[in-house]
Design a protein around this nucleic acid. Sequence first.
DNA 1: ACGTTGAGTACGACGGCGGTT
DNA 2: GAACCGCCGTCGTACTCAACG
Lengths: 365, 365
Amino acid sequence: MADGRSTDGRVADVEPVRRAATLKDVARLAGVDASTVSRVLRADPSQGVRDATRERILDAARVLNYRANAVAQSLRTRRTDTFAVIVPTLDNPGFVEVIRGIQAEAAAAGKLVLLVEADVIASGDLSLARREELFARLVLDGRADALIAAFATLEDRLVARLSDRGVPLVLVNRRQPGIPGSVAVDDAHAAQLAVRHLLDLGHTRIGFVGFGDRTDTARRREQGYRDAMASAQLAVDARWTVSRDPSRQGGLEATAEILSAAPPDAVPTAIFCVSLLSAIGALAALREHGVAVPRQMSVVAFNDHEIANDTAPPLTTVRLPNLEMGREAMRMAMRAADGLSVAQTIVEGPIELVPRASTAAPASG
Amino acid sequence: MADGRSTDGRVADVEPVRRAATLKDVARLAGVDASTVSRVLRADPSQGVRDATRERILDAARVLNYRANAVAQSLRTRRTDTFAVIVPTLDNPGFVEVIRGIQAEAAAAGKLVLLVEADVIASGDLSLARREELFARLVLDGRADALIAAFATLEDRLVARLSDRGVPLVLVNRRQPGIPGSVAVDDAHAAQLAVRHLLDLGHTRIGFVGFGDRTDTARRREQGYRDAMASAQLAVDARWTVSRDPSRQGGLEATAEILSAAPPDAVPTAIFCVSLLSAIGALAALREHGVAVPRQMSVVAFNDHEIANDTAPPLTTVRLPNLEMGREAMRMAMRAADGLSVAQTIVEGPIELVPRASTAAPASG
DNA sequence: ACGTTGAGTACGACGGCGGTT
DNA sequence: GAACCGCCGTCGTACTCAACG
């Protein structure tokens, strides 16, 4: 019992848990008004305060270990200095890099990040309305100053509704008509880079493992693939192009489908996978089917990561400026929160092929 | 120009952006007092409200699209329903699983998660004081109800100071004297499982790639290794035990050191790596040095992940209940936020060896 | 009339208390 | 005399305005 910090007194343990000091407490101790304390502590430049007064206040604040209550500040200023970020999953290394860029920029600006991993939330049978409700809580209820929606998880309708309700919103690697703020890379160009690498090696039958056409990211990547094929005057066999989740499992299934669907002489000699994880799944499928990589089949992945060095064989990839995309998204979100206008942006920063051991010239014959 | 929210003048754009409706607005529309609205909207059971009144209020709220302002609520109730989570890095798949568990539990309870990735913050030369300041902002300023510190990033001193300042705190996979709340797994047992697998295969010279002794997690894992060796009456050569960052790079360096430090006849025939990433680095080092896995060297990793199927060769691992650890951490954090007592907990849930291709009997001779 | 400072109120919701029916 | 419901103070800070010297 008489454990500790009870401010004395015989017993009468008034104040069991010492309340944090407030502006008023500091004011009382310094012998000034709370508003003066506020001015000093915020270093409000528009207001002069006598040095002696300032000193007294600073001392008092130090003595009381004063910390401004962020919630009260937010209520008053209508800013939380917090930004909500929605990603589909943290399993995908690409998202992790984006988040890292977001956090770096946030930390530099003294902002905090509220993270929501959509696939965790979505497990369970949440209806659209219910999910919208969840996301709405983030910004509409005043918990965050803006929302960064990374990638393609959210339905267009949901995004549009949030935007309509006045939520400052930045889309990452995704665009949508009517939504002004977005940060993306040149997906089509990146995809072309990958496919051209295969073309340069001499491949003519190149398969495609995508993730559908519901998002413009996916569409742009597929378009890049098709354009590269077209400009090499090569046909695209529908049996070579399959869409699945951008996960290991998805890539595995898609690749198995490609292998089984086409007659042996029409099987592609290379596959372009539109996500790193699906490429890893493709390698697994090829292994299961006894197809040697790269001798019998080359594989290129979209999105680089350290782990690409450690797969069997190491994966040739296209590296994207994910970190920079995250940084730019955060900067844009801060502007959006300030009511400034935002635009659809393509991130500069290098997009480059990282050649490793999963690609080679096709077996002759 | 006449674009929007210019505060100015002539045009007299009263209410350029429509303000969100407040309790008072709803009250006015429904013809009741704000407090009654509050009661109805919170479905306060201790207070009766006539059905007709309730209906009117509900209608009014619907019409105005009313949403309670979370900041104002927090100020009044002193709860933010937000929990801060600190992880060292999202690169480590183990942390990701923990976070997923945290988020799942949080979502189920209607809580939000503020995520801080410490290595992002720490880049740059932040002093201890400055980092503490950053973490303090999370809870001390009232932005979060409790803090979940996942794993071993934070210095003991920092943790102790936060705890002393009254921050409800839960440590994940880490304990510290004086800090009541923690969630961990039986690391020593898990490590023994790994080492015993190697012993069972016939290995007697087993190396250890750890990550130092600054955290009790690391110490417990090393202890498990040493205990397993001791109970098999095997010696541990100091040249076989190396500590580095639990990253790919760290594992790579540590393994290279083990390979070069010992005379050829004293090199271990197996290595136990205390993190998944360092095991992946170990594989890379062994590849560089031309050591065949598992023929010449077996490797076991601590912490399982899907990617262990895709390394060359696939990694034998010990799977831990990371998800459950995250869930329990979140539940404990909620209790801590309520001022309830918390304890040092060992998570139930299976710890099991996942045998893959990176382990085999040592080469005879 | 100038630099300093205090008083007062708004931010939006909660909740105790007391007054009506 | 319960059942309903309104009044008002409170949470902690920011900021306008006026008053002080």
